[in-house]
């Protein structure tokens, strides 16, 4: 599967309510050891209820400068959240459906 088929795809919960679109996909290099790097496994999805694209990831960091741009982008992506891959119930041809018990997590990047 091509990653851009996941990006910007609409996300709904188990009841069919819209939650937003996939803003980004988070990978973690902690899978099975490989030739040079360990496998990069898909850890989860970052979902934004208001915008389908991100710019420089201000909503995921504490970066505050330049103030005007940081404030605007953080406001534009307010309500963004991260869901673990385990919380994804199924993929349809047009949408991503989350499990009934999914939990919204902070989209902040780990330090």
């Amino acid at each position: 599967m091509i990653l851009s088929d996941l990006l910007t795809r609409p996300v709904i919960d188990a009841h069919g309510h819209s939650l937003g679109r996939v803003l980004d996909v988070r990978f973690v290099i902690d899978g099975a050891p490989g030739q040079l790097l360990a496998e990069a496994r898909l850890a989860g999805l970052i979902i934004s209820p208001r915008a389908a694209t991100s710019f420089l990831g201000y909503e995921r960091t504490d970066e505050k400068s330049p103030w005007l741009i940081a404030s605007y982008l953080r406001w534009r992506h307010r309500g963004s959240f991260f869901v673990r891959w385990e919380d994804v119930d199924r993929l349809t041809s047009t949408r991503i459906v989350l499990a009934r018990s999914y939990r919204k997590r902070s989209a902040a990047l780990p330090d």
Binding site: L3, L7, L23, D24, V25, R26, F27, V28, I29, D30, G31, A38, A40, A43, G44, I46, T53, S54, L56, G57, R60, F81, F82, R84, R103, K104, R105, S106, A107, A108, L109, P110
Partner: peptide, 17 residues
């Protein structure tokens, strides 16, 4: 209401970023 972010042992890569 957001749960705290997950922490990982390996390098974290947001694909777009």
């Amino acid at each position: 209401s957001l749960a705290p972010p997950d922490s990982y042992a390996g390098q974290v890569l947001d694909a777009q970023l």
